[in-house]
């Protein structure tokens, strides 16, 4: 019989113990939205000696973090493109003076939507050909979304 008393006692304790107030956690990735005036897009073509006008739309359910841009050659067709459509690629070739660009940007605090813009000069003396344009976007919780675009520099 002792067991029943104990059992009842425990049920009282269990009942008196309410649901824990668990902090709400963010489990959503930020998004890179493609709009009409986003640039570059998959298979965009950029001329050497001009300025690449980068524009992308970012959004997150809680708060955006930062983003980075990375342009590197894809003369070996190694692909980090995250787009399904592949572009017309030049034949595989050996790089001589390929363009390399790595830049990071912080997004002002407290925003759930942001338009990322940057002006990137494409030098005239670099190797033309297939390049990757990678956009990495984080939110405050550390979720990261990647967009890898194949572009061509002529």
């Amino acid at each position: 019989m002792k067991n029943w008393r104990l059992f009842i006692l425990m049920m009282i304790f269990l009942a008196s113990c309410g649901e824990d107030e668990k902090p709400l956690i963010d489990t959503e990735y930020p998004e890179i939205l493609v709009e009409d005036d986003s640039f570059p897009l998959q298979c965009s073509v950029i001329e050497r000696g001009t300025t690449l006008e980068f524009k992308a739309y970012f959004s997150d359910n809680v708060e955006l973090g930062s983003y980075s841009l990375d342009i590197h050659h894809n003369f070996d067709h190694h692909t980090h493109s995250t787009e399904v459509n592949s572009c017309n690629e030049d034949p595989i070739k050996t790089p001589v003076n390929p363009l390399l660009l790595i830049q990071t940007f912080t997004i002002p605090e407290g925003l759930t939507e942001y338009v990322g813009t940057a002006e990137i000069e494409i030098p005239a003396d670099i190797d033309p050909g297939d390049y990757h344009f990678m956009i990495r976007l984080t939110d405050q919780e550390g979720w990261q979304t990647l967009q890898g675009l194949s572009i061509k520099i002529e």
Partner: peptide
């Protein structure tokens, strides 16, 4: 290993900092 909102150019080559 905590993923942060930060990106690093010099040591991280533009990658997310963990």
């Amino acid at each position: 290993l905590n993923p942060t909102a930060e990106m690093d150019v010099l040591y991280g080559a533009g990658n997310q900092v963990f």
